[in-house]
Design a binder for these strands. Sequence first.
DNA 1: TTTGCTGCAAATTATTTGCATAGTA
DNA 2: TACTATGCAAATAATTTGCAGCAAA
Lengths: 130, 130
Amino acid sequence: MRMTKARRDILKIFNENDKPLNAEQLSKILEEDYDLSTIYRNLNFFEEQAILRSIVFSDKIKYYFTSKGHYHFVYCTKCKKFQKINKCFEEEFKKHINKKLDFEVKSHTLYFEGLCHDCKNRRDYDEAND
Amino acid sequence: MRMTKARRDILKIFNENDKPLNAEQLSKILEEDYDLSTIYRNLNFFEEQAILRSIVFSDKIKYYFTSKGHYHFVYCTKCKKFQKINKCFEEEFKKHINKKLDFEVKSHTLYFEGLCHDCKNRRDYDEAND
DNA sequence: TTTGCTGCAAATTATTTGCATAGTA
DNA sequence: TACTATGCAAATAATTTGCAGCAAA
């Protein structure tokens, strides 16, 4: 891993920011100092290195955030802003969100990504052939 | 709402299938009887009518499923298949997933979509101007 | 010096849209 | 018949990629 100015600048922003950001937003914060392709490449790189994590909401844009801590958010479909949640169970969540954040929940989704039974067992074979 | 052959065929598939499907998959199941734009238009239509719900995973493709029941899934990032989950709390979920489904969880995400405090209070204004 | 990173331009791909025609009520 | 849905082709937009030059180690 080569620590370039672009990478330093990008990491700095994520460390100062606890809300998910997409490539476009990052580019603006960086005052367009870097080409978008550079930003995309670095975001991918950081995700591979598990330094950043990403999430895709219904707008189909990839948002990145640091891998430390929780991956639970409320996302406003109108202004596209996030708020972090620190509580951990669904029912509590809902109360917390409705009352403490004054956020009107329209829908919620929980998903787990990983490898299913079949892919898990075929892993070595697949990785050698991907 | 005009009940066309395309709409009937699409709904039939979703009613027989409890796993999320994307436009491409649907098109194949329908043996390419309909143009993709027709399928996309109808999926949007059904979602507006709250007959279908959708979810976007890390592959950025929109998957649709019937609005009845739970919106909790495990999603295999390799084969892109889903399995439904019926349990309702996170910790229980994890055990359930790991043991009962033999699914190796790599990451999980929970999110609530809706309107934040600001947008909620500005709702009338915004809706009139969108 | 060497290899990996960046900028630029072009490609990719899921989805959307305009328009003329066909189909439903 | 009146209006909506469909097919086709072209447009859109986030992201990726090839390539040549530049910058970390």
